[in-house]
Amino acid sequence: METTRQFDRSRRAFVATGIAAGSGALAGCLGGDSGSESGRDSYTVSMAPMGEIPFDAVPENAFVSFTQYADMAVALGHGDAVRTLFAPEMSGTTMNGFYERLEGVSFDWEGLKNPLEGGVTKEQLYSAESDVHFLDPSYVLTTQPEWDESDIEEIADTVGPWVGSYHSGVHSDPAETYADSYEYYTLWELFENVAAVFRERDRYEALAEVYDETRSQIESALPPERERPTVARVTLDADNGVFYAYHLNTPGFWQAETRPLGARDALADVAWSGDWGEISYETMLEADPDVILHLWGITSRYAIGDIRARLAADAAGSELTAVRNDRVFASGMRYQGPLMNLFQLEMTAKQLYPEQFGEWPGSEPGEPYPAIPTDERLFDRRRVATIVTDGVE
């Protein structure tokens, strides 16, 4: 996609050397039109708000912010390029919880540092010497007050390019610098751009085909809208008696596992100005959803049994229909890449529509994604694992 902004780059090579085609599953076999020779050729990736992003070779050292980019790297066979990660223990164990069901796929997160802890600094980026920064420069400008546009350009020109689209999460407003050049991407469009960075078009297309088939299968089996449950997607802050709330069906890749399911958003009429809202028990009781999806519930940070107990112990919470009917479920991460999205889409479909897609067996903190019987799976694990580990011929 073209944008009105392009950076003039006269700098060192963005990355050191190309990746050999046979460097292993996570190191990445170059698929399709990439090949071992083209991996050493210069190329460009076009993406808003960065514009035309030149590369001299496929990145081997990636500064990764949010989990979706790590999941994308793994999906493309380049998981070992990831050198940093948001909340590494939570993110890494959650990713591997899903990958447990994909033979031969895993992610080595131990030892990775959280690049956002304490803020992003130029010194940090110079020290890391990353070939690519999977972080939206607009996010940096809107969250790091000491940064300005010249700093963004300096890092891109002298260290490595930026690749990211944070505001596509909920279609929030970008930094003023990018107001005229910003574009919003779906999860799978963002994945397509990351695939272009790693020159893994064939892997992207193969996984996108799995996703399209899975989504079509789900959408064709959904009950009529009037028969669908009302759903609240929230995270309980039990200590303060509030819920952090998210919508189900609004644009943005944070809703990538709920929007295709077309459930009725119990909080559709509740507005907030930020990326998420903060609501009370009283507001929840007024909405009284049939189902509560507890975002982040499948991660190691929460135990869904404790969440249910806390809700049941509260005077208002105990009156919620979802609590009384035992329909409070551990939901996934909003920072989801393509592999996570396939599992989270399957998981949520079962939680909302057990009659159509089979009962959700539940999950436990620290345990892998549950073993779903073969005839109740909504996508082919072996097919996905083969794409990731072996590439596409």
Rank of each mutant, 00 (worst) to 15 (best):
A196D: 06
Y43F: 15
V234M: 06
G366S: 03
D173R: 12
A245M: 13
I292M: 14
R334A: 11
A385R: 07
V210R: 03
N341G: 13
E123D: 14
H133W: 01
A27P: 02
S273H: 13
T143C: 07
A349Q: 04
A70L: 10
Y353V: 09
R334L: 11
W254Y: 15
V64E: 07
L125F: 02
L135P: 07
E153S: 14
K350L: 10
G22V: 01
M284S: 15
R201I: 00
V242T: 15
R327E: 05
P59D: 04
D375A: 12
R310D: 10
A48Q: 02
Y335L: 11
S150W: 00
F357Y: 01
E103R: 05
D33L: 11
H167M: 09
E257R: 00
A316D: 09
L112A: 02
L345M: 14
D41A: 12
D136C: 10
L311H: 11
T230K: 07
L26M: 15
Y126A: 04
S42K: 05
Y166Q: 07
G241N: 12
G104L: 00
F63R: 06
R327A: 14
F14W: 03
A57M: 00
D71A: 12
F7M: 15
A179W: 00
G274M: 01
L76T: 13
G119M: 06
